[in-house]
Design a protein around this nucleic acid. Structure first.
Lengths: 241, 241
DNA sequence: CGCGAACTTGATATTTGTCAACTAAGGTGG
DNA sequence: CCACCTTAGTTGACAAATATCAAGTTCGCG
């Protein structure tokens, strides 16, 4: 939950008691293998899932079998907080790598929401944060060529993982297959491969053994056309060099 | 505001008093010409905007000048409710056609939110509804070819406008230029033109004088691969034929 | 009636997809 | 620890979708 707290504190002021209450939320935890379904489309689960460890994703499967990955869920991200109001999943949740989730009954969330407005606000904020990221993905997918689009995704993961302390020496876990990246960017896995070669040739990144290292963050950010403002991180934070 | 109320009642139960309170929200109203900016990126406005009449959009402009339209804002939609928490716009709002907006001070919204949980819940629900639509756009943009993608957009507008009573005889206002559609779908305006021809040739739609008529909704839905479940409309409603 | 914006059309260039073959990597049972 | 086997990654040739450019044409409006 430290990841969650660090994320929430980007846009919210939490007191010690709030933090304690958030930590208290985590009761049952589930371990799920890579490339497994966690929640299916049309499900009506009784509890929300919070990623504690590992990478998961939101996705939809279209009629013709094509899959669209809509978001990556990193440590500290909620998978299905919106269910508290929408009632039914309109997409599925699956793991990328092996993941640990906290299962948090909606009842506990509602209790928090009613009695602790500061926490309620922070949780609502986090869904709006997810929404801001999705807006950027939508713009990226529509307007950027495949190369910059992939670079942009890498920059975003870098910053998000940095927030939760999952980056060491400009390098972080990158457990995605090229097919998963393709389903994310809306391009074929073959093209993902070629675009990755490009980034390597330009000496922007190293990707090896499911770990990605950023070699030249300045040039990568520039190539991606990345402006971090959509992440709503206050200026004083020492992120993005 | 009737549009807003009809939309909220898709997923929320409102009492007569709630409806009255929502109607009471609308004080100052603004009229804005077509293709005008309403709110700029990085703005920190003091009041939210609710579309009363006309079509507006969210958009981002990338470094190279390309524009991505992220959402269409129809009567009953809020433009910037999320600002109450995120604080700063990460995208701009502009009009498509001439629009009338209600300006609603964040103070009033916070008051409602604190003292009237049913309304708070309904407003939160509406931001989650917007999010569900955005997820579908993201999937559509990534996985559908241009033709089905445009058809899908038309289906969605049809249903959304039907909810607020803006559809007459399978036809509705369609004030978009082909360039705006291109910025929405992530394709060039020339290609939008060709794809529109296709839909006309297949006798699926008529588009004339900024008004769109659906000729064969069954075939259009099928061509688009449209499944309305993402809109979270309860089954008993007589929408989608 | 004329002017500018939006739409239409054709020719051509680019990007990306598909198919197919091949190579490399990781995990498992012997 | 190795051989095998499956999955992921790589490469090239070719096809399809879409972009770009340029030249009309139509439409709406003053």
């Amino acid at each position: 939950v430290y990841s969650l707290i660090r994320k929430l504190e980007i846009g919210n002021t939490l007191l010690e008691t709030d933090r304690a209450r958030l930590e208290g939320l985590v009761g049952a935890t589930v371990r799920i293998l890579p490339r497994q379904n966690v929640v299916d489309e049309d499900d009506i689960p009784g509890s929300a899932h919070l990623v504690l460890d590992g990478f998961a994703c939101r996705y939809k499967v279209l009629r013709d079998g094509r899959r669209a990955i809509l978001a990556f869920l990193l440590p500290g991200d909620f998978c299905d907080l919106h269910l508290a109001l929408l009632g039914r999943m309109d997409h599925a949740i699956g793991t990328i790598s092996a993941c640990t989730f906290a299962r948090i009954p909606f009842a506990s969330i509602e209790e928090l929401t009613f009695n602790h407005p500061r926490i309620a606000r922070a949780l609502w904020w986090s869904t709006l944060w997810d929404e801001a990221i999705m807006r950027e993905w939508l713009a990226s997918m529509g307007q950027r060529a495949a190369g910059p689009q992939l670079a942009h995704l890498i920059c975003e993961l870098f910053i998000r993982l940095q927030i939760t302390g999952n980056v060491i020496d400009n390098s972080f876990a990158f457990p995605f297959t090229q097919e998963e990246l393709g389903d994310t960017l809306g391009i074929s896995s073959v093209h993902v491969n070629r675009v990755l070669q490009q980034l390597r040739e330009k000496a922007l990144i190293i990707l090896h053994a499911r770990r990605l290292t950023i070699l030249d963050s300045q040039r990568l950010l520039k190539f991606a056309g990345f402006k971090s403002s959509y992440l709503h991180i206050p200026a004083q934070r020492p992120i993005e060099a």
